[in-house]
Amino acid sequence: MRRQPPQWRIEMLLIHCPYCDEARAEIEFAYAGEAHIVRPPDPSLMSDEEWQRYLFIRSNPRGRHHERWRHIHGCGRFFNAVRDTATDKFEATYKAGEPRR
């Protein structure tokens, strides 16, 4: 990796960090993919197909989506969120390890 283009964006969302218990600007956060996908405890037991599903297959719904964010420029914690992919509205955010909402 040699050169990076300038990183510039208008940060729009207001995201409630369940650890800081505060709504903070999106620019403090990093998106981290679909939530509740657990790394298999022993990947060697998985078939190629199962492993492929774990690696590559994501739900990508229109509407309610469980996803992970990290308050990377804040408390540093990864957490889970339910966001509507059509409206971009957050329904809830909750700490990692808490049950799926």
Partner: peptide, 22 residues
């Protein structure tokens, strides 16, 4: 800095950004 500094009162601290710099 995107924080609401009126509500970030004396005695508080946080990691945040100034534009893109942490």
């Amino acid at each position: 800095c995107p924080l609401d500094l009126d509500r970030f009162t004396a005695g508080r601290a946080t990691r945040t950004v100034f534009e893109t710099v942490e």
